[in-house]
């Protein structure tokens, strides 16, 4: 049996809102040691999502036997919208479940709401992702990266990222013209999450589809910072830290035709 209680429903709500536009169906793998893990790839096979909600993200977590919950995220999202952000949220499943029980408890009122979501058998490829060495890594405020991704998409369907040891440059060239944004590393002592940190083994220039970057920044509400790891001619990793766990996106780059 699985029983996981979140202190606030908002965490799972934000996670599902971050991924449901990229992948519609996915398997939630549940185990006592790893909590909940998900690996899912979008239909175009360009963006991969790797989610880990450790048991530490839950107020209470027990999973007697490893379970796979096949979920339609659009449906789960509809059910999660029934509860308030501050409610306790408990998810419950039997050992061979055909449905997931979702329970919201209002902390002030005596109100408990229960929903049952039908589960599905989902056949999905699992990809092997080794811990890669990266050429460079940038950590920056998540909202700032989101603004760049959204703004630059209005100029071009591609966004070029150029990292050197003393700057990161975002470059867009489109039909109406072009634009670039240059950020320099700095440390904000009072608000560390406002800092921009660049770690560099070697400079990297990569181009990504603006559409996919805009899917990724839907996770902005999850974390105050985002870490972007880039390697020449390889998929990029965008990581949003959870209180205990992470949401990672792997995005394949665009290459010269």
């Amino acid at each position: 049996m699985l029983e996981g209680k979140f202190e606030e429903a908002s965490l799972l709500k934000k996670v599902i809102e971050s991924i449901k536009d990229s992948v519609k169906l996915c398997n939630f793998n549940c185990s006592q040691s790893k909590g909940i893990t998900v690996q899912a790839i979008d239909d175009s096979r360009v963006l991969l999502i790797a989610l880990k909600i450790d048991s530490g993200s839950f107020q209470e977590f027990r999973c007697d036997r490893d379970l796979v919950l096949g979920l339609d995220l659009e449906s789960l999202s509809k059910i999660l919208k029934q509860g308030n952000n501050e409610d306790y949220l408990t998810i419950i499943a039997e050992d061979s479940p055909d449905s997931l029980l979702v329970v919201f408890e209002d902390k002030k009122k005596d109100r408990i709401s229960e929903f049952s979501l039908k589960l599905m058998d989902i056949d999905s490829d699992v990809l092997t992702i080794d811990d890669m060495e990266h050429d460079c890594s940038i950590t920056m405020p998540a909202y700032e990266f989101a603004k760049i991704a959204r703004d630059m998409k209005t100029l071009s369907e591609s966004l070029q990222i150029i990292i050197t040891k003393d700057s990161v440059k975002f470059n867009a060239e489109g039909q109406i013209g072009s634009g670039s944004i240059i950020l320099k590393p700095h440390t904000d002592m009072e608000k560390p999450d406002e800092s921009i940190k660049i770690e560099l083994n070697q400079p990297v220039v990569l181009t990504f589809g603006a559409k996919y970057l805009n899917d990724i920044v839907k996770a902005t509400a999850l974390s105050s910072t985002v870490t972007i790891k880039l390697t020449d001619k390889a998929p990029a990793l965008f990581e949003y830290r959870l209180p205990s766990g992470y949401l990672r996106y792997y995005l394949a780059p665009k290459f010269d035709d």
């Binding site: 790839i41 175009s44 096979r45 360009v46 963006l47 991969l48 490829d125 699992v126 990809l127 092997t128 992702i129 591609s158 181009t207 589809g209 390889a234 998929p235 792997y250 394949a252 780059p253 665009k254 290459f255 010269d256 035709d257």
Partner: peptide, 14 residues
């Protein structure tokens, strides 16, 4: 022009 590549060319199936 730049061409979008698939993740499958980088990651193998388990």
């Amino acid at each position: 022009t730049k061409k979008q590549v698939s993740l499958m060319s980088f990651f193998g199936k388990k």
